[in-house]
Nucleic acid binder design. Structure first.
Lengths: 136, 136
DNA sequence: CGTTACATTTACGTTAACGTCACCCTATCT
DNA sequence: AGATAGGGTGACGTTAACGTAAATGTAACG
């Protein structure tokens, strides 16, 4: 039993998420992933896959791995301790407002960029006109 | 005339944008900003301010400075060359679709996080109930 | 049994994005 | 004139997030 249907090997993870093995080992060393260690090799569970999805997503929004690690704590059954749970709850609330702010900003940025694209189109059209004129 | 109403000193920039002088000099060295050099000191124009706004915004979305630099090219009157303009136009289009994808993902992430917060609230409420029970 | 394919650890290398330090200039206040 | 404030240029240091290389283990294939 080198792998069940439930777990992924490191290669399968690499293929599924388009990351290198080094990255997965690195994330494990940073306590972002917790694959089962059977003998020498790693077996990544469904939980690890969910975590990795969140990690990669977080990265796309500019969060550091340490930020993400703290967020992931809340996705754990770690709430044994009330103080701990309260703390991570507050962190998550904070993160939520950050993301909502980011969303507003993203909308703004998209609008800006669209405006710029229209500008670019106008200028490209100008080039097209000059070319036509030159041809006559 | 050490500064007009139109330009900012490096300190004013630092205060206005909450960055260090080192950062501004670094951005200049990377050709992201182009302050006027009057003798020894720098004078940041309105254009520099607009650029810096875009730089900081880009960073918040996880773009690298080099990515941002390329984007900023389009915000320039640099379209002297048609090929160049076309190239930056395509880059911008690409960036736009990236940001739109990011927006969709962000919405998803926000929804996820909200769900988790509700979970957290339930568990905190559970703690509150146990406390009441213990008090009786 | 050799080798091919994958896996692991250890450890040094790399890149981006600044921080920090040392040293220098110069304008201005006292 | 001396001190203080603010700006400038190297140049080396630092941190995050991996890359890369060397040495080793092991499972299966022909």
């Amino acid at each position: 039993m080198t792998q069940t249907a439930e777990t992924f090997s490191i290669r399968q993870m690499c293929d599924a998420f388009d990351v290198t093995a080094r990255t997965l080992r690195f994330y494990e060393s940073k306590e972002l992933l917790f694959p089962i260690r059977e003998g020498t090799s790693r077996h990544f569970t469904k939980q690890d896959r969910a975590r990795l999805t969140l990690i990669l997503r977080g990265k796309r929004f500019g969060f550091s791995l340490e930020d993400i690690r703290q967020l992931l704590e809340m996705y754990n059954r770690d709430g044994s301790n009330e103080a701990q749970l309260t703390r991570t709850y507050l962190i998550a609330q904070d993160r939520l407002s950050q993301m909502q702010a980011q969303r507003a900003e993203l909308d703004e940025a998209i609008a800006d960029l669209k405006t710029q694209l229209v500008e670019g189109e106008k200028r490209l059209a100008q080039f097209a006109r000059s070319a036509r004129t030159a041809a006559e």
